[in-house]
């Protein structure tokens, strides 16, 4: 693997950004309701200012249903992949992943509390989800950290403990919920983009971009943190400050994505792994690449989820887990 340079980073990110843009356009044409390709492309190119001959229904499907959902998929994927890369550096372990560590569950508990107590006030969801993710992150960190960083065994045990504990909290809160909401709620827990909230979409996108930038701008510190907190300290990293930053940013990313789409699993494992495999472990390239790649991955996974048994839909989390679980086993065997 050649050394990572600014040029290589720009090229990799440009290629991924182009692929992402292409995916956003192409996937918005796919769905249970076929749309005329040329007219749809024309309408997309005009950013919705012209219908280009689409019927009112077709135009609404494209701009009111599919595009917001695809954009949310991109934000959620980017968030989770970036958060995964952050947790991996922080815990010094490539197996760290928000869903498997129970951090998504923490965010889910926060979201549920917001749903039960502040049902109609949508912006309370990401805030409480952030709080839940932060508490779960701190718990995992305290449980998993040993003298030599988080060994795979400790990490997974910590994840199991936090996940099962929070699952029982989720069951407890579910009892408090309206019985009619429970089914859609179960889908949401598995990671579901079908209930895309237009109010939360811009916020989720802003948090994703800001979070990915914040971690990328600390990539050199994270590179050293990945080798060990003591080494990083010796080499000049303000370990305490960077640790708090990763805690906050990663929790915010997980919180906002879970509040919007539930717990989509394994994105934070699969995508950073592929980024490191193809571009190297340097976070200056692997974090932005993971952010873009995560967006791409969840867009494609969600398109599969909503088209494979159309007109019925699967939760996107079912698709990502189908890809992620085998990879996790492979990584665990290698660890």
């Amino acid at each position: 693997m050649n050394r990572v340079t600014l040029r290589k980073t720009i090229v990799a990110c440009a290629v991924l950004a182009a692929a992402l843009l292409l995916a956003i356009v192409l996937m918005s044409l796919l769905g249970s309701e076929p749309l005329p390709v040329r007219a749809s492309l024309c309408a997309l190119a005009s950013f919705g200012t012209s219908t280009c001959g689409l019927t009112q229904d077709q135009f609404a499907i494209l701009f009111q249903i599919r595009l917001p959902r695809i954009l949310l998929a991109a934000a959620v994927g980017g968030s989770l992949a970036t958060a995964g890369a952050g947790y991996q550096a922080l815990l010094r372990n490539p197996l760290a992943e928000p869903y498997l560590l129970g951090i998504s569950n923490g965010a889910a508990v926060g979201t549920m509390i917001a749903l039960v107590f502040f049902g109609t006030i949508e912006w309370t969801r990401p805030i409480l989800a952030f709080g839940g993710a932060l508490v779960a992150t701190l718990a995992v960190y305290r449980l998993a950290r040993g003298r030599a960083g988080a060994t795979p065994e400790r990490l997974i045990l910590a994840g199991v403990i936090v996940t099962t504990f929070l699952s029982s909290v989720i069951v407890f809160v579910t009892v408090l919920m309206d019985a009619t909401k429970i089914r859609s709620f179960t889908f949401w827990l598995l990671g579901d983009l079908s209930g895309t909230s237009k109010a939360l979409l811009p916020l989720t996108i802003v948090i994703t971009v800001a979070g990915a930038l914040a971690l990328t701008l600390h990539a050199r510190s994270l590179n050293l943190l990945m080798l060990g907190e003591r080494d990083a300290f010796d080499l000049g990293v303000e370990v305490g400050r960077v640790r708090i930053l990763v805690f906050l940013v990663a929790s915010l990313l997980v919180g906002s994505s879970v509040a919007a789409s539930g717990s989509v699993g394994y994105v934070g494992l699969v995508v950073p792994h592929l980024a490191r495999l193809s571009l190297g472990s340097d976070n200056r390239i692997s974090i932005p690449a993971a952010a873009l790649g995560g967006a791409l991955f969840v867009i494609v996974a969600d398109t599969v989820a909503r088209t494979i048994i159309a007109p019925r839909e699967l939760p996107v989390g079912a698709i990502t887990a189908l890809i992620g679980a085998p990879l996790f086993i492979y990584l665990l065997k290698r660890a």
Binding site: M1, A148, R220, N223, L227, G236, R276, S281, D282
Partner: peptide, 20 residues
């Protein structure tokens, strides 16, 4: 030495010394 769990080349590792 700490146990490394991420693939890092010798050159990248040594360049870590230039962080400060």
């Amino acid at each position: 030495e700490a146990e490394l769990r991420f693939p890092v080349t010798v050159l990248e590792f040594v360049l870590g010394g230039r962080f400060a």
